[in-house]
Nucleic acid binder design. Structure first.
Lengths: 350, 350
DNA sequence: TTGAAAGCGCTAACAT
DNA sequence: ATGTTAGCGCTTTCAA
């Protein structure tokens, strides 16, 4: 299977390599008849342009590096899928780098991707602080968009979910279905999801006049923490527990069932993210669905923008509004009040 | 951020580009003192080799294409992770292609990866038959290893789980814990998992003298089918239902709970794959854990072998034995018989 | 509109 | 052990 080169197509079609290149890449006007001959010859020989050679010469590989903490985190596969499809629709390919949740690995992978001359980077940072250096350095070389997780201000464009809106949706829903003794199980740490969801919870409960009731327990984004947290909050007899992500919520569901607490009869439980398991939990989990496709589309759009030459210009922060998915875990007990709050703005850009 | 080239390192270190190349690539012996100077200069200038140029010249991109049906299939993320790590450990990068479960998309992505000069392909085929052409064509160009799913005989190396062993482990376990009225919920179709797991179930039940009891229901590998199948098998009053994968099993668990059937009290349920949800189901699902890391390692090993020159030689089929993970969904009811069967061979190669 | 020629940054013969 | 040189396959000036 010897590969056919441009030169051979040129010979077969009786014109120069330059002309063949122009026809096939469509960069410059070419005579109709010549173009036909070239295409015919290319077709007949089964010519396929060598993207590596093209990349070397044109200084563009048509490749984007996608760097993420851990593909096994259940929230990521759908995001990867959407990013991959969006990029492929633009003719780009995805170099995948899984960082094993380790900032040092992340730095190494980013460096490797740059060596491979990716045109741009799409990064879901491992850690708000520890990833910062590597990300900032990379951003100096290629267009770079952060996805899902912030990494300090002004480093690069960031596309993420509007956590505040998500929390507001949850709390509105709980209050409008008669819950009042609400508490929160979140994550400690400096990650944007942990910080923003907690802050939003506190701001919103205050706004709703619920402040001062429930315990706020902070651990990590894990099932185990969800289980453990239940034992901590139960003594205060809540009627709803808002969890900072689905894993925590599913852990909470498990422990509540084990203790014989009825969900949603005694306590409503809500999550955040809408990972595939949320729908399979028993009872199925009410949660906030991140706008995965839109996040991917927006991130890819921003990359395109930067790639199209505007790699200066101010950094953008794009927050996309999530959507509340009401399932059994927050079904009203008996009578339900109506929802009195207005809808949130769907998108904020600043 | 102007990139430093080999030429500049050569000038700075006072020797030729060839010498610098040899030092940095380690291809040929170089004088110790010269090497030191070169490395020093490279370090000082922050030189990073341009992998695209290197690839063009050396005809090797150090890149492997990973083609899969759908990254959102819950069995794949862990496989992707292990493959990615195994390849990275060899200094290779992964170009990811998600095919959206569409063989036409798959063919297009494979072609694109070949245009990008991947050194090799690792493919989880979308469909046993419909993927065959594209896979065979690609195998003529680069080393290619199939993972998880067969694609017809003799097309390429294949690394997969030993479904027969898995089924035997399940049935041995059920029988040794006193189950006798066993039935099977599987998938129709020609995929190797569907076919092999069904065949293994039938062979093993026959071997165990259980043949002739239970219904065998075939649908697809989905939750919905698992739910629906329960209604079909319940009339025959089974005491165990063996499912061809975890999604089916989880669907079955959901429906059984809905119907008030006690698992494992009345009926034991088992799955296959050990996706993350299996552990979170309620009751937690007894299942067959695919040897994900070993599958990835073996596939990468085989690729290495083919890349190292032996791209002729017979196609290999490597089957790796899975492991039974006993959880609550198959706990014995009262008294349990002991396991009388011998252990299976851990690996078969043919 | 087309062709000739000069590289992109690197590696691999071939010399020395 | 090191330097010189010729490309890898393509795009892109620069001329015609």
């Amino acid at each position: 299977m010897t590969d056919v080169t441009l030169r051979e197509v040129a010979r077969a079609s009786g014109c120069s390599v330059a002309t063949v290149s122009r026809v096939l890449a469509g960069t410059r006007p070419v005579g109709a008849e010549t173009a036909r001959k070239v295409r015919e010859a290319a077709e007949k020989l089964g010519y396929r342009p060598n993207q590596v050679a093209r990349a070397l010469r044109s200084r563009s590989t048509g490749t984007v590096g996608l760097v993420l903490p851990q593909i096994t985190n259940p929230f990521f596969p759908s995001l990867v899928r959407e990013v991959e499809h969006a990029l492929h629709a633009e003719g780009r390919a995805v170099l995948l780098a899984d960082c094993d949740d380790d900032p040092e690995v992340e730095a190494a992978r980013i460096a490797d991707l740059l060596d491979r001359q990716v045109d741009a980077l799409l990064i879901i940072a491992v850690d708000e602080r520890q990833s910062r250096d590597a990300v900032a350095k990379a951003a100096a070389h290629v267009p770079l968009v952060l996805l899902d997780r912030g990494c300090g201000p002004g480093i690069a464009d960031l596309v993420t979910t509007d956590n505040a809106t998500g929390m507001a949706l949850v709390l509105d829903h709980l209050v409008s279905t008669g819950r009042r003794r609400i508490c929160f199980v979140g994550a400690a740490g400096t990650g944007s999801a942990a910080v923003e969801r907690l802050a939003a919870y506190e701001a919103e409960t205050k706004a709703l006049g619920l402040h001062g009731f429930g315990p706020v327990e902070l651990g990590d984004f894990s099932l185990e923490w969800g289980r453990a947290a239940v034992d901590r909050i139960l003594p205060s007899r809540p009627d709803a527990v808002v969890c900072a992500n689905d894993l925590i919520a599913i852990g909470a569901l498990q422990r509540l069932r084990q203790l014989g607490v009825d969900v949603p009869g005694d306590i409503a439980v809500t999550g955040f993210d809408d990972i595939p398991m949320a729908d399979l939990a028993d009872p199925a989990l009410t949660t906030v669905r991140q706008p995965v496709r839109a996040l991917a589309a927006e991130a890819v759009h921003l990359l395109g923008h930067r790639l199209a030459g505007q790699n200066d210009g101010p950094r953008r922060l794009v927050r996309l509004a999530p959507e509340l998915v009401v399932r059994a875990s927050s079904a009203p007990r008996a009578s339900s009040a109506e929802d009195t709050r207005s809808t949130r703005t769907p998108e904020v850009e600043q």
